[in-house]
């Protein structure tokens, strides 16, 4: 089973993979630094923000004289139309960004893995049904699901997260299904089943363990994509309410003033870009590291 060679199937294996990637790939190092910075911001943001209450979206007392200031030493990222410090809003917003993407990816991964592995293992009608459900949600981008949920449930955190989970789980279901099919057809799995090992044990010990690693690496890349979609949903006002400390929301706050105070939107947007890029760099290099074909040293032979 050459497709599965070079994969890790334990935490130690994963660390080993990461270490190798760190040694070999500049892009992995750059990506890890970006991700680390993002996580640090999420943890420390509210404590290091120069104006924490601005960061939470509260309008300062002297709003009238502080409104619409371009970047300056006192406000490195400038202030918005209600006089709030944009740097503080960006710093505090990191936490919600991380929370959204972590929640979405972990739940979709768990759901998708479960569905994909079950479909591959049980086959028959279960397989058909699960594949069908996955196909239906693949056809619906998160944005339009968010539209539906926005109409049905109103604004809120739950709308962003639910719509993203609904549109992301099929990807994991599909790739786990493909990998799981390969594993299930292996002889030792068949033998284990024939030997009367309970389904649950076979699934956990053989199938999931082998399917998880590639899907997990995919998930790291997806953290960035999910952040992009979540920000877009929040930007359009389909998700979080307009006073939430979220990057997409801050970009939206600055939208009307894009010409007169571009800094309000540009800074938080740049942070979305940097974070998404960080996750993509990490995920991409890990995938290269895992796939031996891609790891080969290129020889320019012509």
């Amino acid at each position: 089973m050459s497709a599965l060679r070079g994969r890790f199937n334990s935490a130690a294996g994963f660390l080993d993979l990461a270490r190798r990637a760190w040694r070999r790939s500049t892009r992995f190092r750059a990506g890890s630094l970006l991700v680390a910075a993002m996580v640090a911001m999420a943890v420390l943001g509210p404590y290091v923000a120069p104006y924490p209450s601005d960061g939470w979206g509260l309008v300062p007392r002297n709003a009238a004289e502080r409104a619409g200031k371009p970047p300056c030493p006192e406000f490195p990222f400038g202030t918005d139309n209600l006089g709030r410090d944009v740097l503080s809003r960006v710093l505090v917003g990191a936490r919600l960004a991380l929370l959204q993407i972590a929640l979405v990816v972990s739940v979709s991964l768990a759901l998708g893995l479960f569905v994909g592995v079950c479909a591959a293992y049980y086959r028959g009608p279960v397989e058909a049904l699960l594949n069908y459900a996955a196909e239906v949600f693949l056809a619906l981008p998160a944005m339009v699901i968010a539209l539906a949920l926005r109409l049905a449930l109103g604004q809120g955190f739950h709308v962003v997260v639910t719509s993203l989970i609904l549109s992301w789980w099929p990807w994991y279901a599909r790739s786990s299904y493909v990998y799981a099919r390969a594993v299930v057809e292996m002889e030792y799995v068949l033998l284990a089943r024939l030997a009367g090992v309970p389904d649950r044990t076979v699934l956990l010990r053989h199938v999931v363990v082998n399917v998880l690693p590639p899907v997990l690496v995919q998930a790291i890349t997806d953290l960035g994509s999910v952040l992009l979609e979540a920000s877009a949903i929040n930007f359009l006002g389909l998700g979080l309410p307009p006073d939430a400390p979220d990057w997409g929301i801050v970009v939206q706050n600055g939208f009307k003033y894009i010409v007169s105070m571009p800094w309000v939107s540009m800074f938080p947007g740049a942070f979305i870009l940097a974070t998404a890029l960080g996750f993509s760099l990490v995920g991409d290099s890990l995938r290269e590291e895992m796939d031996p074909k891609m790891r080969r040293r290129w020889k320019l032979w012509f």
């Binding site: 877009a232 894009i258 979305i272 870009l273 991409d284």
Partner: peptide, 18 residues
């Protein structure tokens, strides 16, 4: 390539516009 695919489209649109 990664950066282009990681850019929030709405934000890029605003930047191009501005």
């Amino acid at each position: 390539g990664l950066a282009l695919a990681s850019t929030p489209t709405f934000w890029l649109g605003m930047a191009v516009f501005a």
